[in-house]
Structures are given as structure tokens and as C-alpha cells.
Design a protein around this nucleic acid. Structure first.
Lengths: 228, 228
DNA sequence: CGATTGCTTGACCCCCATCAATCCTCGTGG
DNA sequence: CCACGAGGATTGATGGGGGTCAAGCAATCG
């Protein structure tokens, strides 16, 4: 079993504010898990009773709307925490997390996190700051969803993937999203997403090869995202 | 000048976790302000350098989208804090706050809040919890914006106002929103909002009298919001 | 090699954005 | 006290974006 003290991933989130002693304590009681592609890490309505730390892989975080369609709220990758929000507000999970590829995660029980929140102010402040940033990002998404066209949102999403995810050596985006996933990020029907993707392809903004997506012209995509 | 220790409004937010001594300190350096209807409390991009506490009145919090239209992100009323998010993440304000009616606010400078965040863990935890709840609410809004029709969102908004705002003695909603404001909450054109309002009126779900809105049938509105 | 799942394209139509004209309301000044 | 003007509210007409249904196609898997 690997140790938290030596984990590189931890550097990427609030856990890097923990002291060595705190890390050793947490390392002793954390559990590791491997989630296969397509499997569900946790479900809307579940009480998670802890926090997940993503060691490797990508995971989609979705919420079911009243009309029965899934909406992807965010993508979560190596180094991100998952479940902190529900833990802090002491609510059931408001979202479902599903692995997009094979996922390695660590699970830290609630009591341990709560203990550190109470005694380590740096940790608490760092968590507070992370939530504050998430909240701004959520505000931005609200505006986009409310005001932008599907085309603009697709352009924005492609840009986001381009800027935040690694590429394979041939230049394709490393994350493999289904057409359904893409549609469910931008909040539209799968067919609409597909049609817009092909139109972007015709305009040589992107290239499509199976599930591989190549971003050819980020500048132009940015202009589209902002409304020409 | 009124004192924070005796302020009832404070009971409604995280500030009620402050100790008596802390309150006295804050009381000494806070300032009060009156903002007239329609005036701007702060603007997107400003560094607020503090937190506002709403003593009385209602305020809309908006963000301008790339296409130039305002989107109302939330309504803020008596007892709510404003500006905590930007303060915590140490960013410029991502939103603009505009008074919907005459507004009484107190302003607490950043350093005072930061000092308390560092030394009073209960206060920090309470703030953390508030942000966590806001984040869940934002997630819900994202899903609604992405998946629901304008009609559903209007029904939901009317319900929200019905459940969270007081009524005048004749039963009308106390907040006076222009048609533009309503449109900008649900993220649509003013004309669309107006048309849907009249259709709701025809179906006797609501009554309209000038800017007064009477909610007649919340149950039916709820069904509409959920998609029949 | 069927069969299931995902991708793509076509056809259709409704919701909603936009433009335009009119009406209403209210504050201001003559 | 009324006339007038300006901004908000309302209604009509119109066109396009995008949701939905359906059918054909590609790919993956037992």
C-alpha cells in the first residue's frame, strides 16, 4: 500500500496543506480502489462518508435532470478531490461520479478529514479557497448555459479540453468522450452535438478520427465561443 | 451607529459564529451604507476588499455574458453576505450587485474577516459550509439551464420567489422585479418571459397586476417545473 | 458472423430570439 | 391639472436553432 506522504498527486490539492504527522495518520486509514471504465464511483443520493482523491484517470460528474437526461457538471482528473462538497455540507451526494477510463482512487474516511479541518487552519483555508474558485467557475457555466448557443458552448468545451487535458503523441485529446458525453457537457441532444462537430470538421477547426479529436484551430474556436 | 453585537440580521449568516469580542472589534470598524434602488453596490472586476452584510432590501447579482446580456445569478436579501467568495479566493469580483429596492448594507473590511477566519475555526467552518451549499445550488441551476425549457424555468423561478420571499398583505410577492429582471433570471428574451407570464395568467396559475405577482397555484407550477 | 451499441444523416416541426409596432404608466414641467 | 415624453410592457409576425423521430451505417464484442 502506497503512502500519502510520498504521493505526488496530493501536491495538486488541499491535502498538501496537511502536516507530515497528519498525512501519516491519514495514510494509515485510507483505502485504495480501482474503478473500471464505465463503472460508478458513487451515486446521487448516496452518503459517501469521506473524500476521494483521484490518483489516476478521468471521471465524469453528472446530475440527472427532472426530464431524465444526464448533465455533466464537470470532469475530474488526476489530483482532484471528489466528495468534499457533500462532506462539508453534510448532505448526501448531489452528483454521480462515473469513470471515463480505468480509475485509481484513494478513499479517506470523513472523520479523518473533519478532524484535520478542525485542527489545521491552513488546510481549512485551502479547502475554503478551492470551493470559492469552484463557485466562480460554476457561475461562469450558468451564464454560458443560459445565454450562449449550443455552437458556442461546443467551441468552448473543445477549447477547455484542449487547454486542460494532455494529448497523445499524435496530437489527439487523450480523454475519450463519447458523442453522448460531449452532448451532455454542453447540454444538448446527441444529434445536435454530432452535427456541430461535423460542421467544425468541415471548417477545419478540428479533425475527427473515431473517438479521437484533434484541435486544429484554437484561436478560431475561441472566437466562435465568444460569439464571432 | 448600530452595533454588530445587537444586530438581528447577523443571526442569519456565518457571522453568528463570531465571539462577542470579535463582534465588538468588527463593529468598531464596519461602515454602513444606503444604496438607492437601481444603484450598483459593486461591479464585475472590482476588488471589493471586504464583505457586505445585507441589513435590509433585496439585491440582484448578475454577470454579463460575452454576447452582452446580463444574467442574474442569484437574488440576495436581508441577512445574506455578499463578496465572501471573491474575498476568499482573492480574486476580483466576478459578479455585479445592483439594488432592486433601497438597500441597507454594512461593509466589513477584508483584514478583519481574514483575521477571524484564521483564528476562529467555527467561523471558518460555517463559511465553508455556506460555500458548499451554494455550490450545490449552483450545480442545480446548471442542470436546469442546460436541460429545462424556458417555461419550466419560469415556473421554477416563480415557485422559488413564492417559497423564499415574503408577500404583501394582499398576497402579492413583495419583491418587485421588472420583466427584464425575470427574463434575466431564467435566461431568455424579455418578450418570451412576458408571453409565458400571460399564458400562466390565462391558466390561472398566477395573477398579474402591474408589477405585482400573485402565485395562485404553486402545486401546478411545480408540476410544470418538473415537466408535467 | 450475427447482434448489440454507438455514430451519422435526413426530415420535420416547435420553441424561442429577434424586429417592429403599439399601448401603458408614470414622472416632469408648463 | 393636463400634456407630453420616455421607458417599460405587450402583442404580432417571422425565421432559425435545435429537439425529436426514424432509418441507415460503422464498429465492437461475444
Amino acid at each position: 500500500m502506497s503512502k500519502c506522504e510520498q504521493c505526488i498527486v496530493r501536491q495538486l490539492n488541499s491535502l498538501n496543506e496537511l502536516t507530515k504527522d497528519e498525512l501519516i495518520r491519514i495514510s494509515a486509514c485510507k483505502t485504495s480502489k480501482v474503478i473500471k471504465k464505465g463503472e460508478i464511483l458513487f451515486n446521487e443520493g448516496e452518503y459517501i462518508n469521506g473524500v476521494f482523491c483521484i490518483k489516476d484517470g478521468v471521471c465524469k460528474v453528472t446530475k440527472m435532470s427532472d426530464n431524465g437526461r444526464d448533465q455533466i457538471i464537470k470532469l475530474v482528473k488526476k489530483g482532484d478531490l471528489l466528495g468534499e462538497r457533500s462532506l462539508i455540507s453534510e448532505e448526501a451526494a448531489n452528483l454521480r461520479a462515473t469513470a471515463l477510463n480505468d480509475l485509481e482512487v484513494c478513499f479517506i474516511p470523513k472523520e479523518e478529514i473533519v478532524k484535520d479541518l478542525k485542527q489545521n487552519n491552513n488546510f481549512t483555508m485551502s479547502m475554503l479557497k478551492e470551493l470559492a474558485v469552484s463557485l466562480r467557475e460554476a457561475d461562469d457555466v450558468i451564464v454560458d448555459m443560459a445565454q450562449k448557443t449550443v455552437k458556442q458552448r461546443l467551441a468552448e468545451t473543445l477549447l477547455y479540453l484542449h487547454n486542460n487535458y494532455t494529448k497523445t503523441e499524435n496530437g489527439a485529446l487523450e480523454i475519450q468522450l463519447s458523442r453522448d458525453d460531449i452532448a451532455s457537457i454542453i447540454g444538448t441532444a446527441t444529434e445536435s452535438a454530432i452535427r456541430l462537430l461535423s460542421s467544425f470538421k468541415k471548417d477545419e477547426l478540428i479533425k475527427l478520427k473515431g473517438k479521437d479529436i484533434f484541435i486544429l484551430n484554437p484561436e478560431k474556436l475561441k472566437k466562435i465561443a465568444e460569439g464571432f
